[in-house]
Design a protein around this nucleic acid. Structure first.
Lengths: 159, 159
DNA sequence: ATAAGATTGTTGCATTTGCAACATGTATTT
DNA sequence: AAATACATGTTGCAAATGCAACAATCTTAT
């Protein structure tokens, strides 16, 4: 086996980059949940991520949001139900390509809670980024993107 | 803002490395599920990962396995129940530090199914690794490890 | 023009998962 | 020695999630 091929040999799934990604993602989730428990906020971590996505993509319909957050339409609709009930987003009927869709937008009170939580988490995120050199952080981001693109070509994310 | 500090500024959680990790992990999971659906195997993707973990760590008790797979004791026990019912692992009572524990080991038929699935997934894993240079792959792995270690110091993974 | 198919969103159901409580047995404290 | 705390595993319950089926609406095919 040449040096070039050495890094291709995977003897165990749990040694693969995919599985390491899964484990690392669980750590991130645990951290997020801990932070939310501390601030005892009025929204869940999942709702927070969806709210942030909505604020970054104004006027998207539910299905397009579902594609962004990688959940199915059913689950996306339910999270949006909860966010709407809490007054952080509002939905309006509209048409896209001559089809009825529900357009989602963040409300002023949604902006408030989003900004407050983002500010509160800023120190932790800075801490996380600081453990990397700027170059390694760029490589990490690029690598993750590469993984997503590679998988996109193999499996259709059917949402 | 200096160049050095530029990579620290996070305006949105969904732009953070943590969230990118979560999204990328979902892609990996979707790929794994697709592969399993194709081979229509007798075990689930989760059971496969646990079985692989068991085969890499002979004679571990349930709690130590739970720490490795980052699930709680209850869920770990349930997955092991299923694997034992299918004959892929066997449990034996033992003592560790003078405490009753259930030691888990893989069975010959577990080895067979694990080896078969690992071989079947080998081409995909090679494909995944090939999208990186060897250096970038090392950096990716090291970065993921760094993330896990950093989070470990902030949140106790209470398992 | 009618039927078949496609798109968007919702509802029902089953599975997965985590948390709290409990049972059992051990270590430590008073 | 008794009581309290700790460690391991199991059970019950609730929340999250995905999949299939459905409703409503529009497009395409025959």
């Amino acid at each position: 086996m040449t040096t070039k091929e050495k890094h291709l040999k995977i003897m165990h799934y749990t040694d693969s980059p995919s599985y390491e990604l899964e484990l690392t993602s669980k750590y991130c989730k645990a951290l997020l949940i801990k932070l939310f428990n501390q601030v005892c906020s009025e929204i869940t971590p999942e709702e927070f991520a969806v709210l942030d996505t909505v604020s970054c993509h104004k006027g998207f319909c539910q299905r397009d949001l579902a594609k962004l957050i990688l959940r199915d339409r059913a689950n996306t609709g339910r999270v949006l139900d909860s966010l709407e009930k809490k007054g952080f987003i509002k939905r309006s009927n509209d048409t896209k390509n001559n089809r009825l869709v529900r357009i989602v937008n963040i409300t002023p009170s949604g902006e408030v809670v989003l900004k407050e939580l983002t500010l509160r988490f800023q120190p932790i995120h800075e801490k996380m980024c600081k453990i990397f050199s700027e170059e390694d952080l760029l490589i990490l981001r690029a690598s993750l993107k590469k993984v997503r693109e590679a998988i996109s070509q193999i499996v259709d994310m059917q949402i």
